[in-house]
Structures are given as structure tokens and as C-alpha cells.
Computed example of a mutant assay.
Amino acid sequence: MVNKEAYTNFALVYDELMTDIPYDAYVDLISLATSGIKGKKIIDVGCGTGLLSVKLSKSGAIVTGIDLSKDMLNIAEKRANDLSLEIGFHELPMQEIEGEEQFDAAVIAIDSLNYLPDKENVLTTFKGLYSVLNSGGVLIFDVHSTFKTDVIFMEGPFTFDNDRIAYIWHTEEGDEEHSVLSELSFFVKEESGLYRRFDERHEQRTFHVFEYVDLLQEAGFTVERIFADWEDEPPYEESERIFFQARK
């Protein structure tokens, strides 16, 4: 699965590849679940380059971001500093979150949870987040559906080219059920006009909706809402991204 060395080069092109992600919709989801973001303490888990963290902070939240990639966090810190935003960023795997109650909301956005290798690590993460959420605090996250890992991802290879960045994305079935191994070759245009290549290897795994529900409940959460693909509709057989909202 992903490790601390992953994303070293990817961090430099990550933002450009994530322009289609509706982070504002995530802000709205959190605002709805917390009855307004302003003044709320929020932990952004797997924060990456801080795109969501910054949006939450600009909306008035008190934000803490964690990620296991130092390179991603360096970009996140620069982004926040350039905007004069006070956001605490910390290098930490999500499975190691623990502590006293302090946050009103926790968010694990854009399938970051799918980098955990098994249900034990997912449960550990849920328990850790439960411990740091205030009573009544909310956890919101999204994951790949089993349809996406088992069917959509197997339709590769996928390609992308915006003239500055190009990639070839090969996928294959992982060793575990509902897991996918991705091997990406990136080509980034330098000022000289030549392209620099680097390669990334990632593995993600997901579980059935009812398995996430069981893990959330085992951690102590009450599941409030499950929906799919950024719509206020329940998941169906060919849904690709599943959202969960759970309350302490």
C-alpha cells in the first residue's frame, strides 16, 4: 500500500490533476453536518496538498491537516502561508490518530481511506477518530465502490495529456479482494521543452458498504447517512464513489 516515500514526485503535479474534484461540495457537506463551519475545529485526514484544508479554513474553520507524505505537506504549508491562513499540518499516518476529544468534525476525502490495507487498519482509524471527536462530532468520508475497483479500474489502461503533463495509468487486480494495483508513468514538460518521466505505484482496497457500516458501529459511531457520487441518492449497483456520514 502507499507509504511515506510515495507521492514524492506526484506531489508536484497533484494539484493540476485534481482540478475536477468538487472540493466546494465537500465544504458544503461538512457545513451541513456541523450546522455551519465557522469556528468549528476540523481535522482533514489525508489532507494531501491542503486543497480542502484551505477551503475549510477560508470558510472560518479551525483546521488541522494530517498526511503521511512530507512532500505533500510542504506544498500544503506553503499554500496556507501564502494565503495567511493558520492551519496546523502534521506528518502522521491516519491509523496513528489518537488523543482527547477536541474536534467537531473529521473528514477523509477523495478515497484516502482506500489506501489502508485491511479492515483492521480501517477500524483502528475509525477508533482513533472517535477518540478525538467531541460528543456529537461527525465523521465524513468517501471510498471507492467495489464496482469501481472490480470493474471500472479493470478497463484500463487510462491516459491523460494536457500538454504539460501526460500519464499512462496501468491497472490490475490486487492480491486482496476488491483491491487494485496502479502503475502510473508520468511525463512532465520542463522549461527546456523536454519531458521528465517518473513512475508511481499505488495499491488501494475497498470493502462493501455493509462492512464499513459494521466497522463504524464497532468503533462507536452511529451511521447517519450513506449516499453516492456526490448526489443525495443511495448507492446502487454501478455507483462509483460512496459517501458516509457518521456521528459520535
Rank of each mutant, 00 (worst) to 15 (best):
T149Y: 05
G39D: 04
F243M: 09
L29N: 03
I165E: 05
Y23L: 07
F244Y: 15
R196L: 11
N74S: 15
Y130C: 09
L68P: 03
I108W: 08
T159R: 10
E231S: 08
K189G: 03
L51A: 10
L216G: 12
Y23S: 09
L194H: 10
F160P: 00
L85D: 05
V132P: 01
G220F: 05
G60F: 01
F89T: 07
V151E: 15
K41Q: 12
G136E: 09
V223K: 03
F207L: 11
G193L: 01
A105C: 14
A80C: 13
Q245T: 15
E190P: 00
S35G: 12
E200L: 06
A166E: 14
Y236E: 11
I168V: 15
K4W: 08
A219T: 13
Y14N: 08
I110K: 00
V27N: 01
E100R: 12
F243D: 07
I152S: 09
G156M: 12
G50H: 12
K38F: 07
N81P: 03
F153R: 00
E176R: 11
E191P: 04
L133M: 12
F141R: 04
F198V: 04
N162E: 06
P235S: 04
F126K: 03
Q102G: 07
F186M: 01
M72C: 10
E240M: 11
L85Y: 06
L181K: 14
E91F: 00
T206K: 08
H208Y: 14
Y195I: 00
C47D: 13
E77F: 02
Q245I: 14
D67N: 04
S69L: 12
E98G: 07
E96I: 00
E91K: 14
D161E: 05
Q95G: 00
I87P: 09
T64S: 12
P157E: 11
L215H: 06
Y195G: 00
H202E: 07
D24V: 00
I140M: 12
F227R: 09
L56F: 06
Q204V: 14
V54I: 15
I140S: 09
D82Y: 13
G220R: 02
T146A: 05
D71R: 06
E190L: 10
F147Q: 12
S192D: 13
F186G: 05
H170Y: 09
E155G: 01
Q102C: 03
V54P: 10
L17C: 08
A11G: 02
S192L: 02
P234C: 01
F207N: 01
A228C: 05
N74D: 15
W230D: 10
K127A: 08
E176Y: 11
K127C: 06
L181Y: 13
